[in-house]
Nucleic acid binder design. Structure first.
Length: 857
RNA sequence: GGGCGCGUAGCUCAGCGGAAGAGCACUCGGCUUACAACCGAGGGGUCGCAGGUUCGAACCCUGCCGCGCCCA
């Protein structure tokens, strides 16, 4: 074995072996209990970023652990067709050829998208292999494949017949660049600098607006019914400037009398709130802008773009003396298309909607009544806030790439929804709806459409409901809530997953969001290349506290790489020294072996408990410290003299060392699969750790006595090392010393180990101590440092210890002197404080003696 | 404007009612035959501020200050 772990070669070799061997395959006919995760399908246009790397690390960890625990573990991969994003990519390609999609026509364009997918789509799938994702590749799905398309048609038809899908003219978010409707969640709000202008509509009415151009479409002015200032005007009319149209003044509860002048302009065709007011007061809706945001209202502004029209109209009003006030810049929230960042325009148009109220109520109830658990539980509040206030979902998109709405319109105004296997209406004048469905419509079906629904497949029976959904809190609403709605609806009230495990966003080492404009984006493939997939995964895993953001930095990844190397070298040492895993553990073990086995049991217990709570960061921390501190720094060091000594003791330690590493590598495998596989197979001769049994806690191996003994031993060694360090003694310099009181401390048998670790020689005849070290109440060490000791350094060390002991004694004594404490605190707490005081007083006495023994300065 | 959350060591974060912790960074000393991607030792925090509850508060409550996110 090389002295350093080389991840690149190992990772390439191992992953392909795993896939070829079929370790990641799950079968529906298995007798084992199922464990299922469906991957949040990445966009077909996407490539692996840190967010995926985190998400996948968590899912792979859960899946691999369950697989080792004997579950039929299925992690199902796939991709999303990503309507707008994909169409944009292909349209850009066409644009480079001087073509638009309209030049090709719908059919040819869609063909072209499929061709693009075949050639360039799904780069992320190859990158997932680099990360080590243990997905069942045989079950890869795509939201536009045949089976999933059938699922889309099936549920559309069912919702349609249940009256939960309807077509209506509504104000929707419209992207004037993509030329399509957007759902609420496809709109990103940012605080932008705009303007707030106040316009005089009459002697008594002034209105304020950030979108002055919309005034051309005003059909009323609204005031609050109780507003004394305007009561007398309700029912009258004012003349709308620039147009000469007369519009009514209406009273509406939803007007905020405290905002601005208390009077608002009403533009039903271009503002969602105004649309509502318009509905309540039976106002006409006047569309004054086309789908590209160009003014269509007749007059001097016809043909102007909305952003040209705004200042032009303000100027015209100003010329007439109708501008009362102008505030610029005026910072306010503006919606942008999440795909192209174009400012969204509220637009009145005919679209398809899902009536979410009953579906969302069921989605909320499933969490409320405990069928679905959200981890961490605090985030359930956000979930409820969303599902309990959900607007109807606009599902039609004016795109070509996606599931086409299965509705046909007849020559006489008929409207037919065509389900799967149903005849498309034939005859003159029938035509299908031009629009496609929102991409999230098909992703909402993902947990069951990927398992074969609407067919009653064995997969569906075995693997649904899925066990855990792992995703970032940012798409709790986008996607999770929708899967809940459709899952409960389609699967007769059966939830799509039992647990929703949420994680945060990956951030840079200062906790800042990764973004191109900051220039702090890290490509996970870069780290995988330079430090290995395991190091990259471990860095993310180590930061993955439930629901919290995960900062990462290259420094920490180096640390993770170092950890992998540490495991490599520990195993290398073990193999060089004959460690093995054959046969039962020996019965007659010494305290050191019993100690490490006992520690291992605690670690197994902790890892299991933390894992069930999705505490990945703490799992990593536990294993990191056990591996590095207990196993490498202490157990291996303690084993060295034993192994060198040979005989039965060495044989026993070879077996224990083999066992501990075997178990440790299994425990680490779900997080860092590659290096553990390489080491475990080398250590055990086994075929693979991916399907090896998960470690079980053996209560009979828990040994408090051995743990106590080793704690004392470690304290003694550390104290002597501290003395040596403070005295400036070279690490290599051996010091003659006599150890007293080991028997009283119960560690008499460990004298050789202590001497070995603290580099002390036996005291022979004529030994005379130049320094006396009181380590614990029982143990003291007499050393001949072959010369005068550094009295000042030793005094400083002792004074420091004394100060600490003094503080401890004062604090504990103060508590015990307080009758309220002794009277009210529980007995074990009081006893603990008493013990602490006694220990502190013993330390003080010991230190005082040592100080007195020092030569006077 | 409404809601949620966060302010703990230089940095990033655990801890969430009974002794202030980790990783990285830092200081000192070391090539001790697994590992210098290492080993040994060490320094560093009135736990945002002010009140309150409690025998006891980083932890619970109230207010304030400063950040962040989601929704209008």
């Amino acid at each position: 074995m090389a002295a350093q772990y080389q991840p690149g070669e190992v990772e390439r070799r191992r992953y392909e072996t795993w896939v070829r061997a079929g370790y990641f395959k799950a079968t529906a006919t298995s007798e084992k209990p199922p464990f299922t995760i469906v991957i949040p399908p990445p966009n077909v246009t996407g490539s692996l970023h840190m967010g995926h790397a985190l998400d996948h690390t968590i899912q792979d960890w859960l899946t691999r652990r369950r697989r080792m625990q004997g579950y039929e573990a299925l992690w199902l991969p796939g991709m999303d067709h990503a309507g707008i994003a994909t169409q944009n990519v292909v349209e850009r390609q066409l644009a480079a050829e001087g073509l638009s999609r309209h030049d090709l026509g719908r059919e040819k364009f869609v063909e072209r998208v499929w061709q693009w997918k075949a050639e360039s789509g799904g780069a992320i799938l190859g990158q997932m292999r680099r990360l080590g994702d243990s997905v069942d590749w045989d079950r890869e799905r795509f939201t536009m494949d045949e089976g999933l398309s059938r699922a889309v048609l099936t549920i559309f038809k069912r919702l349609y017949e249940d009256g939960l899908i309807y077509r209506a003219e509504r104000i929707i978010n419209w992207c004037p660049r993509c030329l399509t409707a957007l759902s609420d969640i496809e709109v990103e709000h940012t605080d932008d600098e705009g303007e707030l202008v106040s316009i005089r509509y009459s002697d008594e009415i002034v209105v304020a607006t950030t979108r002055a151009e919309t005034m051309l479409g005003d059909t009323a002015v609204a005031v609050h019914p109780d507003d004394e200032r305007y009561k007398h005007l309700v029912g009258t009319e004012v003349e709308l400037p620039l147009t000469g149209r007369r519009i009514p003044v209406v009273a509406d509860e939803h007007v905020d009398p405290a905002f601005g002048t208390g009077a608002v302009k009403v533009t039903p065709a271009h503002d969602p709130n105004d649309f509502e007011i318009g509905q309540r007061h039976d106002l006409p809706s006047l569309t004054i802008m086309d789908e590209r945001g160009v003014i269509t209202a007749h007059g001097p502004f016809l043909g102007l773009d909305r952003f040209e029209a705004r200042p032009t109209i303000v100027a015209a009003l100003r010329a007439q003396g109708l501008i009362v006030a102008e505030k610029r810049p005026y910072v306010h929230a503006v919606g942008h298309c999440s795909r192209c960042k174009t400012t969204v325009e509220p637009r009145l148009s005919l679209q398809w909607f899902v009536k979410t109220e009953p579906l969302a109520r069921a989605a909320g109830d499933a969490v409320r009544d405990g069928r679905v658990r959200i981890e961490p539980a605090e985030l359930a509040k956000r979930y409820f806030a969303w599902v309990d206030n959900m607007h109807d979902w606009c599902i039609s998109r004016q795109l070509w790439w996606g599931h086409r709405i299965p509705v046909w319109y007849g020559p006489d105004g008929e409207m037919i929804c065509v389900g799967p296997d149903e005849q498309v209406p034939s005859g003159e004048g029938w035509r299908q709806d031009e629009d496609v469905l929102d991409t999230w419509f098909s992703s909402a079906l993902w947990p069951f459409s990927t398992l074969g629904w609407p067919e009653r497949t064995p997969e569906l029976a075995k693997f649904y409901p899925t066990s855990v959904l792992v995703t970032g809190y940012d798409i709790l609403f986008f996607w999770v809530a929708r899967m809940m709605m459709f899952g409960l609806y389609a699967m007769d009230g059966k939830q799509p997953f039992d647990i929703i495990a949420l994680h945060g966003m990956v951030r840079d080492e200062h906790g800042k969001k990764m973004s191109k404009s900051f220039g702090n984006v890290v490509d996970p493939l870069d780290w995988i290349e330079r430090y290995g997939a395991d190091a990259t995964r471990f860095t993310l895993a180590r930061g993955a506290n439930p629901g919290a953001d995960v900062p990462v930095s290259e420094d920490w990844t180096q640390g993770s790489r170092n950890f992998c190397n540490k495991l490599w070298n520990a195993t290398r040492f073990a193999l060089l020294n004959g460690a093995h895993v054959d046969g039962d553990l020996p019965a007659d073990l010494g305290p050191v072996d019993r100690w490490i086995l006992s520690r291992l049991q605690h670690v197994i217990g902790e890892v299991d408990e933390l894992s069930e709570q999705f505490e990945l960061a703490k799992v990593c921390d536990t294993l990191y410290h056990f591996a590095w501190d207990d196993v490498c720094d202490w157990y291996v060091e303690l084993a060295k003299p034993v192994l060198a000594g040979g005989g039965p003791a060495a044989e026993r330690t070879k077996r224990v060392l083999g066992h501990v590493l075997d178990q440790l590598l299994r425990l680490l495998h779900p997080v860092i699969p590659f290096v553990t596989e390489e080491l475990w197979t080398a250590l055990t001769g086994g075929e693979t750790v991916t399907t090896a049994a998960w470690p079980a806690l053996v209560p009979s191996l828990v040994d408090d006595a051995a743990e106590g003994e080793l704690a004392t031993l470690r304290r003694v060694v550390t104290e002597i090392r501290r003395f040596r360090s403070d005295q400036g003694l070279r690490p290599a310099q051996r010091v003659v010393a006599r150890l007293d009181g080991l028997a009283a401390a119960g560690i008499a048998g460990h004298e050789p180990l202590i001497r070995s670790l603290a580099r002390l020689e036996e005291a022979g005849d004529g030994f005379s101590a130049t320094a006396q070290l009181a380590v614990t109440g029982d143990v003291s060490v007499a050393l001949d440092t072959r010369g005068t000791i550094d009295v000042a350094a030793e005094r400083a060390r002792l004074e420091k210890d004394r100060a600490a002991a003094l503080k401890e004694a004062e604090q504990t004594r103060a508590k015990l002197d307080n009758p309220a404490f002794v009277g009210k605190a529980p007995e074990p707490v009081v006893r603990k404080i008493k013990d602490r005081l006694a220990a502190a007083e013993a330390d003080l006495a010991r230190i005082a003696t040592a100080l007195e023994a020092l030569p006077k300065a």
